[in-house]
Design a protein around this nucleic acid. Structure first.
Length: 162
DNA sequence: GCCAACGTTGGC
DNA sequence: GCCAACGTTGGC
């Protein structure tokens, strides 16, 4: 099992939107970065725990927990000419972009980026790396546990969504 | 709105 | 295959 952090702009799709989604499960479509795609396509497994991170907003930070609910499959928006994620180079035979699905676990208090940066125990989080822009990043088990139990006050079991 | 950092594109 | 130009991300 691996742990992940997935960024979303709350204006586009927030933790509240995930909670309200039918079945509380959604396709994580629109990723157009190869490294992030590869994480989804090659490494993410059903039930992997996910930090849901709000980016490009007044209070960037972790806003909740989710988990992977479906293995990666071709991102349908790449085939849709009316979508802003349309990719003319993609074909059904040779899809270029993939997405997993994630499901809602729970909201948390907003754990601000600034608070993460200030905590030496999570130094090394890919999210915090200089110039890091990746929308999907892996999280070490130790960092996951520290954030859940020490910073968010959750039980480790709840945090791991078992 | 600024801008640093990084990724992608395309001419050569 | 190099690399300049351009586009995007995302915190501030």
């Amino acid at each position: 099992m691996r742990y992940w952090l997935m960024k979303s702009e709350p204006d586009e799709f927030s933790i509240d939107d995930l909670e309200r989604a039918p079945g509380q499960s959604v396709a994580w479509f629109g990723v157009r970065n190869y490294q992030a795609r590869n994480f989804m396509r090659d490494q993410m497994q059903v039930d992997d725990p996910v930090f849901f991170y709000h980016s490009s907003c007044p209070q960037p930070g972790i806003a909740g927990l989710a988990r992977v609910s479906r293995l990666a499959y071709p991102d349908q928006t790449q085939f849709d000419p009316t979508s802003k994620y349309f990719d003319p180079a993609a074909t059904a035979e040779r899809p270029r972009w993939f997405n997993v699905e994630v499901t809602f676990v729970q909201k948390t208090r907003l754990l601000a980026l600034a608070e993460l940066r200030a905590d030496p125990a999570v130094a090394g989080l890919t999210l915090l790396a200089r110039g890091s822009r990746l929308s999907i990043t892996p999280v070490d088990a130790g960092h996951w546990d520290h954030i859940c139990t020490r910073l968010l006050g959750l039980s480790a079991a709840r945090g791991a969504a078992r």
